[in-house]
Design a protein around this nucleic acid. Structure first.
Lengths: 167, 167
DNA sequence: ATTAATGCAAAGGATTTGCAATACC
DNA sequence: GGTATTGCAAATCCTTTGCATTAAT
């Protein structure tokens, strides 16, 4: 569903490198995250991990995610709260990317751009701000849904046809 | 605490214009949002509104926020989940802006940049995506906290001193 | 052997919902 | 008067926590 090619070392390697204790549960959770073909929320991660070890507990999932977040090995996404308030996770990649989420069909895309890095640099420079995490969420209608629904009445803020001002 | 000068018509006007029924509760909530000097979460909005009308109910607050979101009159922010999972709200302004949130002192800043609009236009063009909402969250350390804590050991991803690569 | 991680079950916080009562237009 | 909105209280969803048990180094 989604290629995730940009990882550096495996999560397991990263944890080992930092002297974090590797438990059976963690091993499974790390692999599950890394092998996932989409963004996982905690409940899904739990379900997938339990296929390998029925014993794995919800609390462990949350604690592991917390650990990985603190070590900055995963990113947390909201994906525009398309489906409730849960969070989604993905192993950090070398290049920051953002996630256009389609309100109509629920599709999540990925997007990278040098502009993103330039924007980050600008914030940092102008505000004297040291950026640890950036999360750019984009909601609207994807290409397919725009094509199917007639775009005559398109009310999105920024339309790909450039017909609308970005106000 | 935070100037909010960029609104167009008042929220009340906008709702009236769209033929939405104006109730006493809504009137108070709209005013409260608009007069706020900071980003409000639902609980704070409720508390402030109850100062004017003790009767106002939590459910009404959530329903009104939902309404305003749907009509795209307010923006919803997570502010990096600095304080739990609640959401924050602000009346939409003419110019999109983002909110660097300091993990150390909790300070929320504001930032606008033409790059932000260019990035949005690029996403829209390249992905054929029609953008309805954009939410750019930035977490790290603010200028003041960077100055007080020695920045020798700065581990933020993008440092304002430009000492670190943006990886 | 020591210390950190786990499982369990219960608590917590934020938000949503069904339904009868109320208030707007 | 008809219909949308409200208040209330319970429910739901997601996440966190305390503590006794278990497992990693």
């Amino acid at each position: 569903m989604k290629p995730r090619p940009l990882e550096r070392r495996s999560l397991l390697q990263e944890l080992t490198l930092r002297g974090v204790r590797i438990t059976g549960q963690r091993r499974i959770l790390l692999e599950t995250i890394q092998e996932a073909d989409r963004h996982l929320d905690a409940a899904t991660l739990l379900a997938l991990a339990q296929k390998r070890d029925r014993q794995i507990n919800r609390a462990t999932v949350y604690r592991t995610l917390e650990l990985l977040k603190k070590l900055r090995l995963i990113d947390e996404l909201d994906l525009m709260h398309l489906n409730g308030e849960k969070h989604f996770y993905e192993a950090k990649t070398n290049v920051d990317h953002l996630h256009p989420a389609c309100f109509q069909c629920g599709q999540i895309e990925e997007f990278t751009s040098p502009l993103f890095d330039r924007l980050k640099a600008e914030i940092s420079r102008q505000k004297g701000f040291h950026i640890r995490v950036v999360r750019l969420e984009v909601g609207g209608r994807c290409r397919v849904c725009c094509a199917s629904a007639s775009c005559e009445g398109c009310e999105e803020e920024v339309c790909c046809k450039g017909e609308r001002p970005s106000i």
